[in-house]
Computed example of a mutant assay.
Amino acid sequence: MKLLFVADPLESFKTYKDTTFSMMREAARRGHQLWACHPADLVWQQGAKVTAHGARCITLTGDADDWFKVEQTADLALADTDAVLMRKDPPFDSEFFYATHLLGQAEREGAKVFNKPAALRDHPEKLAILEFPQFIAPTLVTRSDAAIRAFHAEHRDVILKPLDGMGGMGIFRVGPDGMNLGSIIETLNKGGAETVMVQRYVPEIKQGDKRVLVIGGVPVPFCLARIPQGSEIRGNLAAGGKGVAQPISARDREIAETIGPIAAARGLLLVGLDVIGDCLTEINVTSPTCFQEISDQTGFDVPKMFIDALEQAILAAA
């Protein structure tokens, strides 16, 4: 099969932990042809199909540094591939949004895109949890300074976060003393111009912010607990958290088995649920990670499970 990965520049990959690389490696092991491009390479012109301009057909070298070799470069119509995998990392900004529309046009032309572009737009990673209130901690979404202050007064210990952050960027904790609450609100809501999410602090973060992967509607049996280090409140690996793989809990499974089939039916082949304690905090759909960390620590082959599901989805869509 011919697979096109729409991703960040290949040269930026840290192959020892990169999930997209692990997908490519498993796909190559099965004999699939690998192509790659950046969202900026997507082009549509009236009378033609959505095309990846200058897409690169690559083979994997097995070298940790120079890990790929370009076999050819060509303008590749997305409809001429067997599958397009949208793996551009967040943030979900205007350019990401525009790329999903180009990918949606490619779908109309016959391309098979995973995750489905419309589903990417419909599931902003922090706000998607609102559909499942039975699994989340007390949560507020607002621009209002007064509403945030009232929420803090009720819950005393809260987390504030921007809706467009990634990797733990822009997350603040405010305890019972309310120290710096006003300044933090001003920083995040920009005088009421931007919406903020506020959640009751979940103390189980000390045991880790768990990434629970769901592939084709089915939970991976192991998660990665990203444990804050030192004085940090953030477990994100990008913020210095330590990743420890462990079996998913009964609560993790309950959340995953509820959300997974719904997400799969909407065209989300791969979802990363973030769970702290018993509480769902995010539903990641743009470019979920942690394949390699879980596989390396447990021996469970997450990339194999994913490519199995991808192959089945391609055949089902044929």
Rank of each mutant, 00 (worst) to 15 (best):
G192Y: 01
F172N: 15
M179F: 09
S183H: 01
L163Y: 06
P162S: 11
G192C: 04
P176C: 10
M166H: 13
R173E: 08
K190H: 05
D157I: 03
M166K: 12
R149T: 00
Q199I: 06
D177S: 13
P162C: 11
M179E: 11
A153K: 06
S183I: 03
I184M: 05
I184N: 03
E194I: 10
L160P: 12
A150H: 07
V196C: 01
M169V: 10
A193C: 03
V174Y: 07
E186K: 14
K190T: 07
H155T: 09
T187L: 13
E154L: 12
I159W: 07
T195Q: 14
M166E: 10
R156L: 08
H155E: 08
I171E: 13
G167M: 11
M169K: 15
F172K: 13
M197H: 01
N189E: 03
E154Y: 03
G167S: 12
N189T: 15
F172A: 15
G191A: 00
G167Q: 12
L188P: 07
F172L: 13
L181N: 00
N180P: 06
G170L: 11
T187Y: 01
G178R: 02
T195V: 12
K190P: 04
Q199T: 06
A193F: 02
R173Q: 15
H155A: 09
M179A: 13
H152L: 01
V158C: 14
M179G: 07
H155C: 08
E194S: 15
V174R: 12
Q199V: 02
H155G: 09
D157G: 05
N180K: 11
D157K: 04
G192W: 00
V196Q: 03
I171A: 10
E194P: 07
N180T: 13
G165V: 07
R156P: 06
M169T: 09
I185P: 00
E186Y: 04
P162R: 13
G178V: 00
S183Q: 10
G170E: 09
G167I: 10
I184D: 00
V198D: 04
R173W: 05
T187C: 07
L163W: 06
D164K: 08
R149P: 03
L188W: 02
L160Y: 09
I159C: 13
N189G: 06
H152K: 05
K190E: 14
I184Q: 04
G170P: 11
G165A: 12
G175V: 05
D177Y: 00
G175D: 14
G182A: 07
M169C: 10
V196S: 03
G192L: 00
R173S: 12
I171F: 08
E186N: 15
G182H: 04
A150P: 06
D177P: 09
R149W: 00
G168M: 12
T195P: 10
V158R: 06
D157N: 11
F172G: 14
G175Q: 14
D164L: 07
G165I: 10
A153E: 08
G191K: 01
Q199H: 02
I184A: 04
A193S: 10
H155R: 12
M197R: 02
V198C: 12
E186A: 15
V198P: 05
N189D: 08
V198G: 05
F151W: 01
G165R: 09
G191Q: 02
L163E: 13
V158A: 05
I148F: 00
M197N: 04
E154S: 08
M197G: 01
D177L: 03
G168L: 09
N189H: 02
G167E: 14
G167N: 12
